[in-house]
């Protein structure tokens, strides 16, 4: 029963990733695509967590932190490139 529930939630997460991929492909504006990519990252974190509960191991918990950090950096870089047009500024502007 427990394994069935876990496998069912993994299937739900795959459906969520597919819905987000549709939004990335179709999304009318750029912020929609960025939001969908961020949601894919969060869903991947949830998937890894459910996978490690299913296998009763804690070897994958570092993967969760790394995915979180990389998704955070990606979202900030996309948002900067939308707002300013430049990702990394060269000179200090006061």
């Amino acid at each position: 029963m427990f394994e069935l529930l876990m496998l069912g939630s993994i299937v739900m997460l795959v459906l969520t990733i597919l819905a987000c991929l549709y939004r990335v492909w179709k999304g009318p504006s750029m912020p929609d695509r960025i939001q969908a990519l961020d949601t894919i990252g969060i869903t991947l974190v949830a998937g890894v967590a459910i996978f490690s509960v299913l296998n009763r191991t804690h070897a994958f918990l570092e993967v969760i932190l790394i995915i979180g950090i990389l998704s955070f950096i990606g979202t900030i870089a996309f948002a900067r490139s939308l707002e300013r047009g430049v990702v990394i500024e060269r000179k200090r502007v006061e």
Binding site: I66, I69, L70, F72, I73, I76, A77, R80, V87, I88, E89, R90, K91, R92, V93
Partner: peptide
């Protein structure tokens, strides 16, 4: 890679000169 992720966050927030 973790250290370079932290450095890239600093470069994103501030600028290369700082």
């Amino acid at each position: 890679l973790g250290v370079s992720a932290a450095l890239i966050l600093l470069f994103l927030t501030y600028d290369i000169e700082t």
